[in-house]
Computed example of a mutant assay.
Amino acid sequence: MDNQQVDTLVRNLYQAVDNKDVDYLNTALSEHSRFRLGNYPEVTNKAKILEGNSQFFSSIESMKHTIDDIMFQGSVKTDSTRISCFGTVDYVRLDGSEYSAVFSTFLDVKNGLIEDYLVFADISGL
């Protein structure tokens, strides 16, 4: 993947997350994905990842990610790319109150699909 492809992947992913678009996640994740959000246990079953994201999306009114930087390294030999990005996420709780957190995300992408999706953020205030 080149700079533009990585940037597009990350921005499309976070636009989908901000839109609470589980269908997009279904197409972006490989069948053997691994997902972890904050201190929650990792999930390795794609159906459970989608279910968990859907449950999380319904627990908040909205969210908006601002990405400060994206970095990556790729391997032509294995057609894989390791991406890291960080920024701020602003949440609106169901009661209308607001909460912000910084986040870092690590993605492993192989053959165009996300295999590892690890998000580090303090969401305990939600």
Rank of each mutant, 00 (worst) to 15 (best):
I123C: 02
Q4I: 12
T78V: 09
N111V: 04
V89E: 09
K77I: 13
L9T: 04
V10F: 00
S84C: 07
N19C: 03
L13Y: 07
L113M: 06
I70Q: 08
M1N: 12
G112F: 02
V76D: 11
K20I: 08
L94N: 15
D108F: 11
Y117V: 00
L29D: 04
E51C: 03
F35E: 08
A121Y: 09
V102F: 06
E31M: 10
D7Y: 11
C85S: 14
D23C: 02
I67Y: 06
E51H: 13
F120D: 06
S84Y: 01
Q15N: 12
Q55K: 13
S58M: 09
K48V: 14
V102I: 11
S97A: 05
D108K: 14
D95N: 10
K46N: 02
V119I: 15
E42W: 04
N19F: 03
S54T: 11
Q15C: 05
V109I: 08
K48F: 07
S104E: 08
F120E: 10
C85T: 13
H65A: 02
Y24W: 07
V17Y: 10
I49D: 08
D21P: 10
N53M: 12
R82E: 12
Y14N: 05
F106I: 12
Y117K: 00
D69C: 01
V92A: 02
F86G: 12
V6T: 10
G87T: 05
Y14L: 07
G38A: 07
I60V: 15
F120S: 09
G87H: 03
D95R: 05
S84F: 01
K64H: 14
T27M: 01
G96Q: 10
